[in-house]
Simulated assay, not measured.
Amino acid sequence: MNHVSLNVALYGPQARWAMTERGRGAVERDASNLVIGPSAVTWDGEALTIDIHEGDTRLFVPWQRKVTGRVRVYPEALNRAAFALDPKESHIWHCLAPCARIEVEMQSPGLSWSGKAYLDHNRGAEPLETGFNTWHWSRAHLKDGALVCYEGERGDGSLFASALRFGADGVPEPVDLPPIAGLPDSKWGINRRTRSDIGVAEVRRTWEDTPFYARSELASRFLGEEVTAVQESLDMRRFSSRLVQYMLPYRMPRRKA
């Protein structure tokens, strides 16, 4: 509660990145509301509304550009089952809405769109860098539901991997893992991996490329369907390096309110 932030990442010609950390004095929450400084997240039983009032952060740039607007996420189905990512259940992943609709209305920068969305949640009893060395995650909307693949290496060196198909009702069903599809390393040298029916996938765009994390759009094939997938790869060993730890405060400044 003393280290809270709202992360906003906009890609494209008007790209913005906001992730300002705030202390417990700037945070309020109850069952349906979370207030983080000037921004807020609210659930009304139908949609998750994210009111954004932030400033962007850029390495070694002292001034901020406004990042303001409203995002509304409408789950098409809700999943109540959460999954442990380790035997001690120190890390829990919950895919709340495998399929959802999104409406984005940004004032600064001036952008708006609507489309498909996804909503999940992670929580843990220890730092991520303690529990994991690496992970690879991908998800894709199907004609009827969605497929999510999750795999990686835990901090103790053990491996985990799973594939879940979510039906239109949001209920998860384990399915056989598709074959591994290797991807080219990111520009920062992050090893990327996904799954595909034919063991082949194509990187269409890399949206985020950092020293320890990469997020990409893929062309892939799941359960016999040609799909557009979102994929991420995370390297917590890189995250823990001295260089990255030195850079983090420039990308994630701390504010009192």
Rank of each mutant, 00 (worst) to 15 (best):
G115H: 01
A18K: 02
C95R: 06
E46Q: 13
L147N: 06
T68P: 01
S158I: 00
S220V: 08
D197E: 04
I92L: 07
F160R: 04
H136G: 04
Y150F: 14
R58V: 06
A117T: 05
H136E: 10
K187S: 15
P109D: 05
E89V: 01
R65C: 00
A100W: 06
E21A: 12
A97N: 07
R237G: 14
D156K: 00
P211E: 10
L142E: 12
E89C: 12
D209W: 02
F60T: 05
H141A: 10
Y74D: 05
R70I: 03
D169N: 12
R205A: 06
N2T: 02
M252H: 13
A229I: 00
T20I: 04
N133Q: 14
F166G: 12
D169I: 01
A18L: 04
D30T: 00
I102F: 01
L10Q: 06
S240D: 15
R123N: 09
P179Q: 03
N79G: 14
L248K: 11
C95T: 10
Y246M: 12
N133V: 10
R255Y: 06
L248I: 09
D56C: 14
G55M: 05
C149I: 13
L10H: 04
H3E: 12
G45A: 04
I190H: 14
I198K: 02
G12K: 00
V244C: 06
D86Y: 06
L48N: 04
P253W: 01
G155E: 07
G182D: 15
T210Q: 15
G110E: 15
S240P: 09
E46I: 01
K88R: 13
N191Q: 13
P172D: 11
V73R: 00
E208H: 11
S112G: 12
P38N: 11
G69N: 08
F239K: 15
L177N: 14
G224Y: 05
L34R: 05
E151K: 04
C149Y: 11
P211Q: 13
W93H: 06
A40H: 00
N7T: 14
S216R: 11
A146M: 15
A100V: 01
T134Q: 10
M19T: 03
P38G: 06
R29A: 13
F83S: 07
Q245Y: 00
T68M: 03
E232K: 01
G152N: 02
E126L: 14
R251V: 06
I180Q: 05
W93Q: 02
G145D: 12
T20G: 04
H3K: 08
Y11K: 01
A125W: 04
G110K: 15
R29I: 00
R24L: 03
W43S: 03
E129D: 15
G25A: 11
L248V: 10
Y150D: 08
D44V: 01
E208S: 07
V175Y: 15
S216E: 15
S138W: 00
G189R: 03
H141L: 08
D156Y: 01
H3I: 02
P38L: 08
Y150N: 06
D185M: 12
R242P: 09
H53L: 04
L34Q: 07
H141V: 05
E173Y: 04
L128Q: 07
P62E: 10
N191K: 11
A168C: 13
E28P: 05
S32Q: 05
S39C: 07
A140Y: 11
E76C: 03
L34Y: 05
